[in-house]
């Protein structure tokens, strides 16, 4: 698994629950390190073991934990860079949804060995979508839950009102149902193309 993904989980735990919880988890697992290095690649099994240990330590269901990680990635100021890169995907939430198919390719442009789950959006009728999330390339279940948390937070970011449901998974493909109830429900957060805008 790519260090970026492991590092994201680590940052989530440290920023949300504190260093002690994270150190407890690395000790429990007998890892020889306490920090994941984002630019290195780790063996595939370590991510699953970290998640299991986290569920035990936090007394949380795996699905809920994964969804929380997705929300964290968009909404926490310590990982603002991720939110900004995602916002480049579209000028509104509808536009952003349409960009999800390209997301793995966009990520690979920046970090060539970073593999993200393959996504495919279908619009069944106006404002009703389904998104399939295929984690086959990552050898790990449950990425759809991360995507769900991430989409909820992105909807808030754009100021859109969105209803979502996880429709289960088959052979590492998860289906999310998305209803864009109101694209301009609230103001949303400001986004400037330039990271350093003169005020």
């Amino acid at each position: 698994m790519h260090g970026m993904i492991n590092r994201a989980i680590e940052r989530f735990v440290r920023d949300t629950y504190g260093r002690e919880v994270w150190q407890g988890v690395t000790q429990d697992l007998g890892l020889e390190y306490t920090e994941f290095e984002p630019m290195l690649v780790y063996e595939a099994t370590v991510t699953g073991r970290v998640l299991e240990a986290l569920c035990r330590a936090l007394d949380k269901e795996r699905d809920d934990l994964l969804e929380d990680i997705g929300t964290y990635l968009v909404s926490h100021p310590n990982v603002e860079a991720i939110r900004r890169l995602l916002r480049f995907g579209g000028v509104n939430f509808h536009d952003f949804l349409q960009s999800l198919d390209d997301l793995p390719e966009r990520a690979r442009l920046a970090v060539p060995d970073l593999h993200l789950p393959a996504m495919e959006l279908r619009e069944h009728r106006t404002s009703f979508f389904s998104l399939s999330v295929n984690s086959g390339a990552l050898k790990m279940e449950g990425f759809g839950r991360v995507v769900m948390g991430l989409l909820r937070a992105m909807a808030d970011d754009y100021g859109a009102l969105v209803l979502m449901e996880h429709k289960g998974s088959r052979e590492r493909t998860e289906i999310l149902e998305i209803h864009l109830a109101d694209a301009a429900f609230a103001d949303g957060r400001d986004f400037q193309l330039s990271a350093r805008v003169n005020v």
Partner: peptide, 19 residues
């Protein structure tokens, strides 16, 4: 897209530099 790339590459470069 180019602005996205500039920002994404800067972030990746930053991580590499720290490593």
């Amino acid at each position: 897209e180019m602005l996205y790339l500039v920002e994404a590459k800067s972030a990746a470069m930053d991580a590499s530099r720290k490593l």
